[in-house]
Design a protein around this nucleic acid. Sequence first.
RNA 1: GGAGAGAUGGCUGAGCGGUUUAAAGCGGCGGUCUUGAAAACCGUUGAGGCUAAUAACCUCCGGGGGUUCGAAUCCCUCUCUCUCCGCCA
Length: 426
Amino acid sequence: MLQVQVIRQNREEVIRRLRVKNFKNLELVDEVLSLDEDRKRLTQQYDEGRATLNRLSDQISTLFKAGQKALGEEKKGETTTVKQTLGEVTEALQVAEARLQESLVLLPNLPHASVPPGNTPGDNELVRDSGTLPVISGTPLPHWEIARIYQLIDFDLGARITGSGFPVYRDQGARLQWALIRFFLEFNRSRGYMEYMPPLLVNPATAFGTGQLPDKESQMYFVEGDQFYLIPTAELPLTNIYRDANLKAEELPIRMTAYSPCFRREAGSYGKDVKGLNRLHQFEKVEIVQITHPDQSYEALEGMVRHVEELIGLLGLPYRILRLCGGDMSFASALTYDFEVWSVGQQKWLEVSSVSNFETFQSNRMKIRFRDTDSRPRLVHTLNGSSLALPRIVASLLELNQGPEGIRIPGPLQPFFGNDRISPVP
RNA sequence: GGAGAGAUGGCUGAGCGGUUUAAAGCGGCGGUCUUGAAAACCGUUGAGGCUAAUAACCUCCGGGGGUUCGAAUCCCUCUCUCUCCGCCA
């Protein structure tokens, strides 16, 4: 959520930036400013009414204590009109505040100055890649074939138990999941991230805090009876750990990591996009979150990009890093880097991580503040990234490392998997 | 699921219709003293709105609503915590 004060002071700049993000409803900016004027005007009227009423109450109190009952009763009469006006003003003020809020939450975050313009994935900017793409002798199989032959993942069984997009991992396939999860967590921990195991269902306030509500409501599974959302990412519970917090500057930065299953309805997806592990309704992911001083968030973002890059490098996967264009960025983000790994079996890039700086967009909603020396509390910056999402890593890994002797497991992962290869089923 | 008790400032905790503009203690910050520190003493110390303002005014005692001239205090409701019963990995 943008801060009204920022919009008021930088109206032109705000509109210019929203254009970069391909935001169409630009009239909303002036609407917000006008609604804020209403709010200020009504607030002033409300304050004056309250002040009058407070004075009268004091006078009545004094009169009754002095035993002047008749005069006291007379004063009471005077409050009637004040109260009536105050009641009307209060109602109007509440409406004005609600309207302002409703409009304000519809404005996406402003993109950072380095965000390239554009509207499609083709407009994303290549930051760097791992070099020449590997060539596999023979015809490399796609991961769903490998998963079938080695009996690692059963998509049909999952479809019968739940529905499409809910695969069942079996034996070496299941163990590979846990090996990757533990490997990712240990790597994150070694770089100062505190490990958490958070709730997988969250309430609306939490989903609002990180920006999924109201923007992404239809993408989340909802538990009707208890009004809970199944988390689409551990970002929600992790970042909300610090909701309403008043931090000290020396407590920053805060680094957190957690593994969680992620649940996404993915309404509107179809065709080869959802083949195999490419797009699932339930998948495993390890997330990293940082809460930083506003002056240090971009440094932190670059650090997170290097962190994820190193992790993918340890798995030996071909990758590239993209800076997302304005139109391809998420609602809440100010700057996002996407990581893609190469699928040699499908001959295409697969997104495995998205690393973003949200600046104060989330912290303004969650009221995460910190106090610098002798200043008033200020909003922190929040960042997060995948480190990493499993399915497409598994897809790339299986396809790249297939061979006659089985699937080779990258060295750094072997201690977690307990073997140097996935063996053929006897 | 049933019955009861509770939720107050960074923490502990008093207040249970009107000098509460929220006591007191702890913690934090500043000062006196000291070579320095500790102790002691003195002062200061929540958030938000409006604002040029660290001025005035207004709001906030878990959330929401109500009664009253006036609510932390009374009533309703929701959420959460604790105790007991039931159920249960």
